[in-house]
Design a protein around this nucleic acid. Structure first.
Lengths: 352, 352
DNA sequence: TTGAAAGCGTTACCAG
DNA sequence: CTGGTAACGCTTTCAA
């Protein structure tokens, strides 16, 4: 491979000096370089397929146009990859490159990942987690513009802006959907206490009942974990051997995997979904919710939007866009109800 | 933040020249720099918490110790992230940093991702795909040491080494497991033609039958796609309204999601798994196969091993380790049978 | 309007 | 054994 053309090559070919090349190609030609030279320079650059060496640029400018993305396990786990997708869209459209490092849930690697990135002079940092959670922010993130996506600064007084889904209103709207279908006895398999998302979604659940002026059947809320088997077990407890009159007519799940378990339990028990039982998921997990049988009604997490919002915020900071609302510390992105086939009207025989 | 210490700072503090610092810190001090100076230099470096600036290093050495990983959708999709995990493990352990770029299935972004990475002088490139597939290798990858993981150079005469799972033997061993349990009528929901993995797994299926001297019931092989709903529909076709004698006693699936659909169908039909029907998955998808009810017996893809093998190979090349088998173009990594609860002995009443 | 030179932080070569 | 100097590729300031 022949070596890449440098600014010097372009200068020689155009018969000018390196500085002229630099000025022209950076748009500061007018008033400094003769029109005619400018044309020759541009042509020479095109002919040589010249583009400046980013490394030399970084060294010179102390800016790299690279944004470091650190994640707990977004790359290696099946979840939430679209946050990075959304962030990367924005970064690319603004001429930045993102580099992703995954620490695979090993908190001790957080600091070193950040230091590595900082060493390489990234212009900004973003931390992304799988599932909403508090984050012990690595010290290094405070030394450059930084933002959190799907996680919250765990310090006594938070320092970094975070972009998170609006879990409370997500839980509320999901419940609202079921109430609208006439359901009154709704059980909630609420995930595990390990993520703050669980209690927030429950809070929305309660709010919806209160908002409708209905009694809150809070005894219907169970912590169940996040996986298929726990959904299955939870549903069996609610349904197996229970008379139709005593059964909840709908089960809300804190994620789609729990919902898969519930559907499985219903099938096992000969209950038809949604005729005998409505089931709601949460997350709108790609190729789970939409391909399930029946396809799951669910509350979609705004992953791409979150990533995009976080990156936009970050780049505004990096480029010193002097965004006036640089002082708010939180962006909440609404979840989106996706109605499919697992929810339907309350069975006619159900008790009011 | 105070600026980071440079080699010059260290030199001043130790009362020597920059060159001395460079030599000592790179282990070439002996025979060049006085023992005593060496000590002072090392101490000064420690006191200032000095580490060389990677950017300057890159500019100077034309090597960055960065490996670029390009993927079609490993980051943003739920699948195969552990290939990157395994690759990154190896890279870090050898002092390299990986940067990941995901093109989200937009082939037109492949070339530009590679060019961006090349511009930034990565020392090597790795392309990773979700699911085994042929790859139109971006031109740029031929200009630096490169390797393919989970994909195969689609050129008439392949140029890049690839690391792939041994799908044929995976299919064979999976079938072997079922044959060992006494099953003779085994149906195979074989995924979609879009991935070469499907026909290879089928090939293994056939090989197992032949190896056992049994008639190949090749009419039992169906293309079904890769998702829950297609698994469900496929299973319904095989099972619904079919007399026990005519039913297959086991269904092998080309991935775990299909298997979920099959389990669902079985539940719907009142069939007990594995008592009435054995079900095999493929992939050992994290938090699907192991949390399914019943937990799925499956053929695990060696994702981490593949990533590790590919990166090892690549770094050997980058570091010019003169690895003598640099001429083989293929590494096959065996899949691993994981026996859980969805497979069991053939029902006693089943026809021979 | 142009070109020369300094500097970003490093390493390697070569006199001393 | 040591330290000065050039070079990596670029931008920017300053003098001509």
């Amino acid at each position: 491979m022949q070596r890449k053309a440098t600014a010097l090559d372009v200068a020689k070919r155009a018969g000018v000096s390196r500085s002229a090349v630099s000025l022209v190609l950076n748009g500061r030609g007018d008033g400094n370089v003769a029109k005619e030279s400018q044309d020759r320079i541009r042509q020479a650059a095109a002919e040589l397929n010249y583009s400046p060496n980013p490394i030399a640029l970084s060294l010179r400018n102390q800016r790299t146009r690279v944004i470091g993305i650190v994640s707990d396990e977004v790359v290696t786990s099946p979840f939430d990859g679209n946050i990075i997708g959304g962030a990367d869209d924005v970064a690319r459209s603004r001429g930045f490159v993102t580099v992703v490092m995954d620490t695979e849930l090993d908190a001790s690697r957080d600091a070193s990942a950040v230091e590595t990135l900082l060493d390489r002079q990234v212009d900004g940092l973003m931390y992304v987690t799988v599932g909403l959670k508090p984050l012990d922010v690595p010290q290094g993130m405070l030394r450059v513009p930084s933002v959190l996506a799907n996680c919250i600064d765990n310090a006594p007084v938070p320092r970094l802006h975070h972009v998170i889904p609006d879990e409370v209103s997500g839980g509320r709207e999901a419940t609202h959907h079921l109430l609208g279908l006439g359901h009154r006895d709704i059980a909630f398999l609420a995930g595990a206490q390990t993520s703050p998302a669980a209690p927030l979604r429950v809070q929305g659940f309660r709010a919806a009942f209160e908002g409708a002026g209905l009694p809150v059947r809070a005894d219907r809320v169970f912590l169940a974990g996040w996986d298929i088997d726990t959904g299955f077990n939870g549903a069996m407890k609610l349904l197996d051997g229970v008379s139709p009159a005593e059964r909840p007519t709908a089960i809300m799940c804190a994620n789609d995997r729990l919902a898969v378990g519930v559907v499985l339990a219903a099938a096992r028990l000969g209950l038809s979904v949604p005729r005998d039982l409505s089931i709601m998921g949460y997350d709108d997990e790609f190729r789970i919710a939409n391909t399930m049988v029946p396809a799951l009604t669910t509350m979609a997490l705004p992953l791409r939007e979150m990533g995009a919002a976080a990156m936009t915020r970050l780049l505004d900071q990096v480029e010193g866009a002097g965004n006036s609302d640089g002082d708010t510390l939180e962006t909440m992105v609404p979840c989106r109800l996706v109605v499919r086939e697992s929810t339907g009207p309350v069975p006619s025989g159900a008790p009011n």
